[in-house]
Amino acid sequence: MNPFTAAACPRLIVKVGSSLLVDPTGAVRRDWLASLVADIAARVRDGQQVAVVSSGAIALGARRLGLAKGGRASLEDAQAAAATGQIALAGIWAELLHGEGLTAAQMLLTLDDLEDRRRYLNAAATLDRLLRLGVVPVINENDSVATEEIRFGDNDRLAARVAGAAAAQGVILLSDVDGLYTANPGSDPSAQHIPRVDDIAAVAHMADRGSASGMGSGGMVAKVEAARIAVAAGATLAIVSGRPPHPLVTYAESGHGTVFPAGDAAPARKAWLRGGLTARGAIHLDAGAVAALREGRSLLAAGATRVEGRFARGDLVVLVAPDGSQVARGLAEYGHMDAALVVGRRSDEQAALLGYAPRSALVHRNHMALL
């Protein structure tokens, strides 16, 4: 069974890349977009709830403002182009969806909206209500206010994070490439297409950082990272060519692309932790602590070897094995300075070092998600 049918995937996130939606002159590829909207409408009539993550605002705005380098010459240009282009982008989506009898809604998100737990829950509640009402949310990064410190930087990872917030079962990344290859097919004619990936870590080195068109901000690295986030949230992700008209129908008929099958669906809080992008620091562990975490235990100070970064209590940190691999993500029970004081220490030593009664763990198992 196709994993993206309404029966198998009641909620679907579809991401559209800039190079598909906007031509090299900065004009909307309207006929192509109308064909995609028709595909979405057919899925909604079939009972599927669909949200769209749409790039293109900066490219559209840059054309209208006459900005060089597609509006990406500076942060200020990108923000101005996004503010100008987003209203045009939303209008085109709303018009075409209305023509298919559907209502569009707009959601603009920054990284902080999905990394801060309270704001994440607010976004999730809005998405859930819109989808239950039969509305098609059209989502984009809020590039008019985002800076390097508070931005996703690509809509592939945004789409995967939205999938977690919406409790979606699937993500389709419509791109100018048709999936993951063993090497860059543009420069290596021997590159082989990979139809399915069950071990993301084993293929991460195959990803190329550049976008084929030069218009977008992603690349295969961002898509593989998006797959990691989606799979951790229990959603299957596919990288699919969006070049032909009716790309969703084309994919449903051909099945050609690269699929990353969903992992076991984690509880909502654990999925949010797994998908976090802005870890404030790292805690390095010994082999015994790694084994304890995999048995479902908390991280005790005695099993830590050192800390990195500047983090406060409640910040997201990654837990790192002796070989440098990430074992888990969790919320720190201590700030970095106090954590450094108790690293490697038994619980009966910690009170004297801290000057107060120690907490039960550096990272509690209830606030931790294994990777």
Score class of each variant (00 low, 15 high):
L130Y: 02
A204K: 15
F152K: 01
R132A: 11
G170R: 11
N184E: 10
V177T: 11
D154A: 09
I139V: 11
V197I: 14
V138Y: 01
E148A: 15
G210R: 15
S175L: 09
D198N: 14
G186Q: 14
S144H: 10
G218F: 05
M206C: 10
A204V: 09
D176H: 03
G179C: 09
L173R: 10
G164V: 10
D156H: 12
L180D: 04
V197E: 13
R196C: 12
H205K: 12
T182G: 04
L131G: 00
V145Y: 01
G216C: 09
V162T: 05
R157V: 14
S190P: 02
S217Y: 03
V145S: 02
L127R: 05
G153S: 08
Q192I: 09
G134Q: 00
G179L: 11
A124D: 07
L131T: 00
D188M: 04
R161Y: 05
D176G: 01
A168R: 13
G216I: 10
L173P: 03
L174F: 10
L158V: 03
P189C: 04
F152N: 01
S211A: 15
S211R: 13
P185T: 05
A201S: 12
I200Y: 09
A201T: 06
V145E: 02
A124Y: 05
N142E: 03
L180S: 04
D178A: 13
A168K: 11
I200K: 06
G170Q: 13
S211H: 12
